[in-house]
């Protein structure tokens, strides 16, 4: 299967000049499928957490956005129970000038700045809006429980 030069170039750059706090490693048998790890941003309830994600570059990438979702459980108003992410640049605001690294940076930024007004998980968003302190406490607890390396058994 011929891989477009753009994907080869992006992968090379991700491996050679990795973004701090982010890693993306392609699967050997499917070079369009990446295992991603994002470190939770500091000063956020996700601090010290390492979140696993999976990313797939569809056939018509970069004309369509990459598909990406969390594999680690996370308490966040813009991430649903199956790890799907509500982020404008992954949907309507995608531009072919964006790249894997810019998208992963956007997701890292989303962790630092949850947007409960555009929720994907309505119950989480509700907690976030009504009692932010409780929501942040839960998010911190989940980070400890599911995203701390020693606890990641699966």
């Amino acid at each position: 299967m011929a891989l477009p030069k753009r994907i080869i170039k992006e992968t090379e750059r991700l491996m050679n000049e990795p973004v701090p706090g982010i890693s993306a490693i392609p699967h050997e048998e499917n070079l369009r499928y990446f295992d991603v790890e994002i470190h939770g941003p500091s000063q956020s309830p996700y601090q010290d957490g390492i979140f696993k994600l999976e990313l797939f570059l569809p056939d018509d990438y970069p004309m369509t956005p990459p598909k990406i979702r969390f594999l680690t459980k996370i308490f966040h108003p813009n991430v649903d129970k199956l790890g799907r992410i509500c982020l404008d640049v992954l949907k309507n605001n995608w531009s072919p000038a964006l790249q894997i690294r810019t998208i992963l940076l956007s997701i890292q930024a989303l962790l630092g700045a949850p947007n409960p007004d555009d929720p994907l998980a309505p119950d989480v968003a509700k907690t976030w809006k009504e009692d932010e302190q409780a929501a942040i406490a839960t998010a911190t607890e989940w980070t400890k429980k599911y995203a701390t390396p020693t606890n990641q058994t699966d």
Binding site: M1, A2, N30, E54, F56, K67, R69
Partner: peptide
């Protein structure tokens, strides 16, 4: 060009 092979999880999501 061959079509990219969609991984299991993304196929099931779709």
């Amino acid at each position: 060009m061959a079509v990219a092979q969609v991984p299991r999880n993304f196929k099931l999501l779709a």
